[in-house]
């Protein structure tokens, strides 16, 4: 099966990132008796130029691990990452890594932990500019100012000499975004960038990210556990469960016509007062499988209301059901 089918066929956009059969195991045993956490299992997807791919899953589903492997913070166990069609080697020289990171940047979940409390805003934004040698001498001040203003920290001058403790959560996350954008990346991996923020601030950050995407021609991998937020941000949504991609398709279709039983469950669990104020009752086992010893068949079968015998024996393939819509479930395999 060619991996190319995981892209959205209708659009002839340029592919920025392509991930094929990405696997990441963590050894949690010891040297002579290894035990592996199967955090990411054969995940494949692609992100087009200017596209937002939402990666949705519960905690422990491997979505953050996947992003960290792509950001080269973890080494993949196996699998292939391609940036602009070029294979990204597992081991890279510092120079090569720098070049890769100039294109791929990350925004972290916790704005309270991801900024060094000892440094001023000026220093934090200047670091990527200096490390990547993007600006010289005096230009740096005006470049930092420009970046801050682009992230709606206005007037920029008043933020330059502040320490993180002087900033609110929303302001800190804007610093995190400005820092990621300093090197003019093509792809930004956003790991739950709004989950630690207050509700009235969340939407501002999401809107800022969408505006910057248009302005700077970015692509995002937008990681979240919030299906509604993913729908708001993304062109396509990928649903991850216990390390595997379960469903992938255009945003509207995933929300309006979810196919995989897990996606349906997520949709049912999400608050949606616009539909009914008395939500239907959920009946489901709640335990995510042990990833050290994952179930032999489909990883969702212990919780699945439609599980049959085959589900406990074999892992279904991620198969195409309609243009650009893929699902990993025996209910839809031919």
């Amino acid at each position: 099966m060619s991996h190319a089918i995981y892209t959205n066929e209708g659009d002839k956009m340029k592919t920025v990132l392509e991930v094929r059969d990405l696997v990441k195991y963590f050894n949690v045993g010891h040297l002579f008796k290894p035990k592996y956490v199967h955090a990411v299992e054969k995940v494949s997807f692609s992100i087009g130029s200017g596209e937002v791919l939402g990666l949705v899953g519960e905690s422990g589903s491997g979505k953050t691990t996947a992003a960290r492997v792509i950001a080269k913070l973890y080494e993949p166990t196996s699998g292939e990452i391609k940036l602009f069609g070029e294979i990204v080697p597992t081991k890279m020289s510092r120079k090569r890594l720098l070049k890769y990171r100039k294109n791929v940047q990350m925004i972290f979940q916790d704005p309270f932990a991801s900024l060094n409390p000892l440094h001023k805003v000026r220093y934090m934004i200047s670091r990527p500019l200096k490390i990547h040698r993007l600006v010289k001498g005096k230009e740096i001040e005006s470049k930092i100012g420009y970046l801050l203003e682009e992230c709606e920290l206005i007037p920029a001058k008043s933020f330059l000499d502040k320490y993180p403790y002087e900033l609110s959560g929303g302001e800190r996350q804007r610093i995190g975004i400005a820092r990621a954008l300093a090197v003019k990346p093509k792809l930004v991996l956003a790991d739950e960038p709004t989950s630690m923020l207050d509700v009235s601030i969340r939407l501002d950050i999401m809107n800022l990210m969408l505006d910057l995407k248009e302005k700077e021609g970015l692509s995002y991998l937008y990681i979240t556990h919030d299906l509604a937020g993913a729908h708001y941000m993304s062109d396509r949504i990928a649903i991850m469960y216990a390390g595997m991609l379960m469903e992938l398709g255009p945003s509207d279709e995933i929300i309006e016509h979810p196919l995989h039983p897990y996606t349906k469950l997520l949709k049912k669990a999400a608050p949606k007062p616009e539909e009914s104020l008395r939500p239907e009752r959920l009946v489901v086992g709640e335990e995510i499988p042990d990833l050290v010893d994952p179930p032999k068949g489909c990883r969702f079968y212990p919780r699945c209301p439609y599980a049959t015998k085959i589900c406990s024996e074999e892992v279904p393939n991620l198969e195409k059901v309609s243009s650009g819509h893929f699902v990993r479930c025996f209910l839809y395999s031919k």
Binding site: I201, A228, K272
Partner: peptide
């Protein structure tokens, strides 16, 4: 009112919403 508009709805067409400015 602002809070209610700060939650993107799950269903329906995607459209831009605006939160509450300031803090």
């Amino acid at each position: 009112e602002g809070l209610m508009n700060s939650f993107p709805p799950l269903s329906g067409k995607r459209k831009r919403l605006h939160g509450i400015p300031g803090h």
